[in-house]
Design a binder for these strands. Structure first.
Lengths: 137, 137
DNA sequence: TAAAGTAATCGGAATGGTTCCGAATTAAAG
DNA sequence: CTTTAATTCGGAACCATTCCGATTACTTTA
């Protein structure tokens, strides 16, 4: 997802164009790993040294809700990254060392044979964890 | 997994047979939903009113490490349940309201076509979330 | 472009789940 | 029965996250 697409979504939902949101989005636009709120805090320090965690978490939650960011969890920490540009639904391998990802084009939901017709499905999660080539060395 | 099997594993790894472990295992043996540490605390109150969270978490971590319990995470909370008796590897639908589960026999790892040969795979997660028939009403 | 209204931000305090710590207790081995 | 090491307790500490009241910054409207 590009910066412009993100802003388009935000403005459409009546969120204002603020300096902090621009800083956050720019950061995620360049990073392509999953990062924590603390990572974000450190990374945007030169742009806004006094940015509060309240602001970070509040906006990350908004971005996540609107589908601008992807969110997952590892060892009790929340991780965020820019939503992939790839148009069709897919999943990821996630490096547990650096947070980098590799897309997995297929979705296991297509192959689930169990009868869940009486169940109300809200979502699903498929992720492969490990170490990427760079982090193995 | 039965109580006896759990104890067999624990003793084999030189963990002692204590009252608290027995209480915890008995509880998980009867419950078949994913529960939080707080749920455990409340549930075992009559057996040991003064049981500390330290004891609960410490033992749950041991059980989880030894494969006696299954562990997952939902909305920032850790959830535990007795490891399934089903012998072959599988996954679960998890009710976000009551924590009950339904097995999904297939594993998406069998169908992943992406080349991950240069990656070191540590694990994977496939879960479907939603509401079970009982909780829909 | 000034004023008004509302959203967003800040700093710090509060929260909630989890872990740590030293002292006391308990299980297993000798 | 003693000894030794693991386990437990209670409470403090920790850490990520959220809440709060006061302040600041957008956007709209005139």
């Amino acid at each position: 997802m590009t910066l412009d697409e993100a802003w388009e979504i935000l403005l459409k939902h009546d969120y204002k164009r603020t300096k902090n949101r621009e800083i956050l989005l720019r950061f995620f636009d360049e990073a392509d790993n999953y990062v924590t709120a603390m990572d974000v805090r450190v990374a945007v320090e030169q742009d806004n040294p006094g940015i509060s965690f309240d602001t970070i978490y509040r906006n990350l939650a908004v971005f996540s809700k609107l589908g601008i960011l992807d969110e997952t969890e590892l060892n009790g920490e929340r991780l965020f990254r820019m939503q992939c540009a790839i148009d069709h639904h897919h999943h990821h391998f996630i490096c547990t060392t650096c947070g980098s990802t590799k897309p997995i084009p297929s979705c296991p939901m297509d192959m689930v044979t169990v009868n869940l017709s009486e169940y109300e499905i809200e979502g699903h999660k498929f992720e492969i964890y490990g170490r990427c080539p760079k982090c193995i060395e």
